[in-house]
Amino acid sequence: MGRVTERRKVIRIRDGAVSTRPDTLVAEEPLEIRLDGKPLAITMRTPGDDFALAAGFLVSEGVLGRADELQNIVYCAGATVDGSNSYNVVDVRTAPGVVVPDITLERNVYTTSSCGLCGKASLDAVRTTARWSIDDTQGGTAPPVRLEPGLLASLPDRLRAAQRVFDRTGGLHAAALFTEEGELLDIREDVGRHNAVDKLVGRALQEGTLPLSRTVLLVSGRASFELAQKAVMAGIPVLAAVSAPSSLAVDLAAETGLTLVGFLRGSNMNVYAGEHRVTLRATAAQG
């Protein structure tokens, strides 16, 4: 299996002084995801949690939603020149009777470590394939998740404190799941934010805990449409990011009932959608 970090020689310049030293870098390798033996997607990822990544990816594609729909995931034998197992190719086998949505069957996609799926379909694809509704404004058996701004403000420091590989490399994104009380449930790191989220969601699928209906997803960078989609598909009601959201992410959040928080830095934040889940006491400023 590939290594999470690798060592490379660098020339270091500090205050005019030049030295040579080894540096620890985050590893990045391609992962091909096959579905029932057929190539589906290639992503650039940090090795580790590959099975969870593949499972989470298929949750976001609307293929999987329950642990019993997943038969198994294996590394592919014979995928290398010498016929040995390739740890950069995984095959996801669905259980008998699982129907694969047309949006997955009709395309072979390439993903990158930074942007997720390229040329992703419109908001309609998410609306028609999402298994769980996160729109709790119409009433229901359980009260909506309610979050104090102070609790949200505390989450980035908790995420950063748990980033073990980042401390060694400075080059990884992270995604973390928290309870509505702020308890850290899980954290995953990867060169790509969307990969880190897939690893979280895939682990939840394997453990039978989907939908993640009373959790908060925090990501270490911006909130793209891809990440909002993954939150909705996993039944996560709150997505928070330390940087900016995209316009399409805000549109998706508003349409599906997702609470979307951006620029979560210190005690400051912007709530772009789903504000009913955030306890707001101050009078809104005019302007």
Rank of each mutant, 00 (worst) to 15 (best):
T279C: 14
L258F: 04
E32C: 05
D157Q: 13
G37S: 03
L58A: 04
A176L: 09
S224A: 15
L264I: 09
G170D: 01
L280M: 10
L218E: 10
L210K: 05
E226M: 12
S220P: 02
R203D: 03
D190V: 03
W132F: 10
P245N: 07
E28I: 00
D186R: 12
A161M: 06
N72I: 04
K199W: 02
G182A: 10
V242D: 08
P47W: 00
E181N: 12
D167S: 11
V250C: 11
R21H: 09
D136T: 12
K38N: 04
R34F: 05
A162T: 07
S220E: 07
R193H: 15
R8E: 04
P30L: 01
I73E: 02
R277H: 03
L280I: 15
V74F: 08
D23I: 01
A253S: 12
T129M: 13
D124K: 07
S246P: 12
V98H: 07
A121W: 08
R193T: 15
V261D: 06
L31N: 04
R281A: 03
G208A: 03
A55E: 01
V99N: 06
L25N: 00
V4F: 00
R107V: 09
A249M: 07
T80M: 09
Q229I: 11
R66F: 04
S154M: 12
L185G: 05
T209K: 15
G139A: 06
K38P: 03
G97D: 07
P22R: 02
L205W: 00
F51D: 03
A54F: 02
R66E: 15
F225S: 10
G2T: 01
E61L: 10
F51C: 02
V191K: 00
H194N: 11
R3C: 00
L212K: 09
R34K: 09
T169W: 00
C76Y: 05
I236S: 12
I42V: 11
M269Q: 12
T43A: 15
D124Y: 10
V4E: 01
D190L: 04
T104K: 07
C118W: 13
N195F: 00
L227D: 11
T283Y: 01
A161E: 13
A67N: 01
A125F: 11
S84P: 02
L227W: 09
L200V: 11
W132N: 06
A175F: 07
T80I: 02
R45M: 02
R107D: 09
E28A: 00
L35A: 08
A162V: 02
D36T: 02
L105P: 11
A253E: 13
T128R: 15
F263D: 14
R93K: 13
R127I: 13
Y87K: 01
A282K: 07
A27R: 02
L35V: 12
I134Q: 06
V197E: 10
E106P: 02
I73N: 01
G119A: 10
V219M: 08
L58G: 02
S84V: 10
